[in-house]
Design a protein around this nucleic acid. Structure first.
Length: 245
DNA sequence: AATATATTCAACCGCTGGCAC
DNA sequence: CGTGCCAGCGGTTGAATATAT
């Protein structure tokens, strides 16, 4: 498949946006909206590629963006959602009004990951799977970084013994199990967070088909399951109406 | 005050999936 | 069904800024 050339091949500008460019983009979108990002810069008179315009708008210029530091509640929400969803920043951002996926990603990498690593030094906090990327992946029977690829409603549960200790997560601030603070994970929640594609996969009575589903199964079956985890997933799949051949 | 080092975050890059043809 | 285009996503980069020495 041939990829359409982007900025660099078209003599378009890159790098930081000037206030004038910002204003031009804002004015154009306020007047005409952003139906076609690719066509937008040309129509608006900007020497930028559509991708750059979209990024600037969604991450910075959008009027509903909340600026400033993250609150403790927001940080806790990010931690909780990351535990469930992995690096699915857009899904996490969907639960934090006014925050962008890029911003959340930055906060995660600069503040939260570090904080969790420090918390890990405290014995009762060691259940949280972030020690460092490699360790946590290696030690997780269910790789937390792949939670986003798991069948979505599986994410509403902690496997009963996904490891001997990892089903109970404690936050640094209050010592409570973080699961107590989560929004109720009903079907609408997961449909919203994960998008209809994965919901469709889980709800698909035909079983697992296609690359995504193979990956999902791979993530689950490549592990060396304990009886407990096997039982858990057997029950889970049965309850979801998913039949493995 | 000058320099080195660490941190932050806006922006870019490349990939993927959806859709139209 | 295959191809091409597009929007969106997550990973990464690098300039600007802050902090330490």
């Amino acid at each position: 498949m041939v990829r359409a050339p982007c900025c660099e091949k078209m003599g378009l500008k890159k790098g930081p946006w000037t206030p004038e460019e910002d204003q031009t983009l804002i004015n154009y979108i306020n007047l005409y909206g952003h139906g076609n990002w690719r066509a937008l810069p040309k129509q608006a008179g900007l020497l930028r590629c559509g991708k750059s315009c979209r990024l600037r708008w969604t991450n910075y210029l959008r009027p509903d963006i909340k600026r400033g530091n993250f609150t403790a509640e927001e940080e806790e929400t990010i931690i909780n959602l990351h535990q469930m969803l992995g690096n699915r920043w857009s899904a996490i951002a969907a639960r934090l009004p006014g925050r962008t996926d890029n911003e959340i990603k930055n906060v995660w990498h600069t503040h939260l990951k570090k904080r969790l690593r420090q918390n890990y030094a405290t014995p009762q906090l060691r259940n949280y799977p972030v020690m460092n990327e490699e360790e946590s992946i290696a030690q997780q029977p269910f790789k937390y970084t792949n939670y986003g690829s798991m069948p979505s409603s599986a994410l509403a549960f902690s496997p009963p013994h996904c490891s001997s200790e990892s089903s109970s997560i404690i936050t640094a601030e209050n010592g409570e199990s973080w699961t107590n603070n989560l929004p109720e994970a009903d079907e609408n929640f997961w449909r919203e967070v994960l998008g209809s594609d994965q919901m469709a996969t889980v709800g698909n009575q035909q079983g697992f088909e296609g690359e995504t589903s193979e990956r999902q199964l791979g993530n689950l079956t490549n592990e060396q399951p304990t009886h407990e985890t096997t039982d858990f997933w057997t029950i889970f799949f049965q309850e979801e109406g998913i039949y493995l051949s």
